[in-house]
């Protein structure tokens, strides 16, 4: 009887130590690392369509189990599949309450209409719009994630979204 208990305890100790050492060597420690790993799978459009103010906050919400994995409209099914694989959950269809998946687009400013109000500069989450008050603004197509956040503040509606890769 006592031997069995000792053997089991010894095994538990051995395996526990092994896991500890392996875990430490893999280096994935803390919630931050976990959030980073989820964040890596998100498209980084920072569009906030998921209801969180950016990709990392959404990643943190997923980790805390506050948000389901199917709210990322820009990422669409591939992103959901990748999240499902990482978190070992079953993939779900995109929740269309939080937007629909569309092919990549970029914002384009109609420079003839732009009045240089600089409001779009402030909201761009990835600093993809250049300009200054009273000067015409332009979107750096290569940096734009197509998040649409610049559309609402524009007082003259001079920003449109066009398919990415078209001539810019």
């Amino acid at each position: 009887m006592i031997e069995a208990v000792l053997v089991m305890a010894g095994l538990a100790l051995l395996i526990g130590t092994g896991l500890l050492v392996t875990g430490a060597r893999l280096g994935a420690t803390g919630a931050d690392a976990a959030v980073d790993r989820i964040n890596q799978l998100l498209p980084q459009s920072q569009c906030a369509q998921c209801g969180y103010p950016g990709c990392r906050p959404y990643a943190a919400a997923i980790l805390r189990d506050e948000a389901p994995i199917n709210r990322c409209a820009p990422g669409g099914d591939p992103t959901i599949a990748a999240l499902a694989r990482l978190l070992q959950r079953s993939p779900q269809p995109l929740d269309t309450d939080y937007g629909t998946h569309q092919p990549a687009r970029v914002a384009v400013i109609d420079e003839a209409l732009c009045i240089g109000c600089a409001r779009c500069l402030e909201v761009c989450p990835v600093d993809a719009i250049v300009g200054a008050p009273r000067f015409m603004h332009t979107v750096l197509a290569a940096q734009c994630t197509g998040c649409e956040l610049c559309l609402p503040p524009c007082p003259v509606d001079c920003i449109t979204l066009e398919p990415a890769g078209a001539d810019t």
Partner: peptide, 20 residues
């Protein structure tokens, strides 16, 4: 295409973090 998307996402992430 996927790799290019990943690369773009990393850049967007950096810019977003810098802005924040």
């Amino acid at each position: 295409a996927h790799r290019e998307q990943q690369r773009q996402a990393r850049l967007a992430q950096q810019r977003s973090e810098a802005r924040n």
